[in-house]
């Protein structure tokens, strides 16, 4: 049987989410796989064109339907099921989009789902983390069922550009429920780099002490061209918005540089950053667990050294 992987694209209607290219990379590493990308949108031409440029993608299925103006699992899942016929695997990034959608798809297909796939060991064998990353398990999926999985994007590089996939318009006639309706989305508009794909991230914790003082993290990040992250404690305290949370229940990231400012380093936070290439920690508590994973540690009062760091960087 030929191995065909369908990757469900995460996007905002115009642009492909960075996690999609990483999910494609995981799909391409399935031995002998032919990889297709499914774009569900109201008018998905731009997103489909971007997906077609990803290396390793053979075909892009563009499923335009008015109901897809907002990506909601209840309306998308029946379409994915209809279009997944003939595929051995259905993957998606483990973004909030993928985590919402793919379990619903798997249940409709009557199969298990693999969450946060972190490596492909064989056509039906994968690794994934449990217990906030304190254990890694090898999982074997049955070969006679569709493998549905979300891909832990921090574990894979993004698929390169340079692909020239065929784009095919597909349509489904499957009836869609009307019981779920989009109302609004509220996001902090920002020109800063995207947290999930940024090369550098400056992240702040509870030690910042207030929303106003958290601005220090934003200013340092802006100076370094970095994205901003936050610990759960900082988000819970209202210093930073929820979409900046890094960790087990927030975003799992793998930047070149992660600069943790005033973050103690709870295990739930560390699980979100352990794939970072270089971790720098600034904390005044020498016993803080963040120092156990940091490549470079500085025990100091952040309110003293962050301005000093800014001045030193500005001086070149």
């Amino acid at each position: 049987m030929s191995i065909k992987v369908l990757v469900v694209a995460d996007h905002d209607g115009n642009k492909l989410n960075a996690g999609t290219a990483r999910a494609v990379k995981a799909a391409v590493s399935v031995p002998g796989a032919e990889v297709h990308v499914l774009v569900l949108a109201a008018a998905g031409a731009a997103v489909a064109a971007a997906a077609a440029e990803l290396a390793g993608v053979a075909r892009v299925l563009q499923a335009d339907r008015a109901e897809n103006a907002h990506l909601m699992a209840a309306t998308l899942a029946p379409q994915v099921v209809a279009l997944a016929a003939g595929y051995t695997h259905v993957f998606g990034p483990s973004s909030s989009f993928g985590k919402d959608l793919l379990p619903r798809v798997a249940a409709l297909l009557g199969v298990a789902q693999i969450s946060d796939l972190m490596s492909v060991e064989g056509t039906y064998t994968f690794k994934r983390p449990i217990y906030a990353g304190n254990a890694i398990i090898t999982v074997e999926a049955p070969a006679d069922q569709v493998v549905v999985a979300t891909v832990r994007t921090a574990s894979f590089e993004a698929a390169a550009d340079g692909g020239q996939a065929v784009i095919e318009a597909v349509s489904t006639t499957v009836a869609l429920p009307t019981h779920t309706r989009f109302v609004s989305v509220q996001s902090a508009k920002s020109d800063r780099p995207d947290l999930q794909s940024a090369a550098k991230v400056v992240s702040g914790g509870r030690a910042l002490g207030s929303k106003e003082q958290f601005e220090l993290v934003f200013r340092l990040a802006d100076q370094m061209g970095a994205a901003v992250g936050a610990s759960r404690a900082a988000v819970d305290a209202g210093y930073a918005p929820n979409e900046l949370q890094v960790g087990q229940t927030g975003k799992i990231i793998a930047p070149e540089l992660y600069l943790a400012v005033g973050i103690s380093g709870a295990i739930q936070h560390l699980t979100g950053i352990k794939d970072a290439k270089t971790i720098v920690a600034i904390n005044k508590d020498p016993e803080a667990p963040i120092f156990e994973v940091a490549d470079i540690g500085l025990v100091a009062d952040l309110f003293v050294v962050v301005p000093e760091l800014q001045a030193t960087l500005a001086a070149g």
């Binding site: 909030s96 309706r181 989305v185 509220q186 996001s187 929820n242």
Partner: peptide, 14 residues
């Protein structure tokens, strides 16, 4: 109201 990657999304469900 849902915590999603983009921020906060609001849905109405029956």
């Amino acid at each position: 109201t849902r915590e999603v990657d983009a921020g906060l999304e609001t849905l109405e469900i029956d």
